[in-house]
């Protein structure tokens, strides 16, 4: 219920109440995403093709359709 408390509090900032609540919510979400991203990047380090340069060089396709 922290968000509701935020809504009740008088704002000391220039912005309206609603956007600042939204901002709090967004910050929380972005922090969550940041943690997710850190975990994800750890995983990428493990699964990314070993020799990226060779992998990319060898990925050659014929045109299709």
């Amino acid at each position: 219920m922290t968000e509701q408390e935020h809504i009740q509090k008088p704002s000391t900032e220039k912005n309206d109440e609603a956007p600042s609540v939204e901002l709090v919510a967004n910050t929380a979400k972005n922090e969550q995403l940041k943690n997710d991203l850190d975990n994800l990047l750890d995983e990428i380090d493990e699964v990314l093709e070993d020799n990226a340069e060779e992998f990319v060089r060898n990925y050659v396709q014929k045109g299709g359709e």
Partner: peptide, 10 residues
């Protein structure tokens, strides 16, 4: 860096 292209493909 080729790793960026590798991510794109993978």
């Amino acid at each position: 860096d080729p790793r960026l292209r590798a991510i794109d493909i993978q």
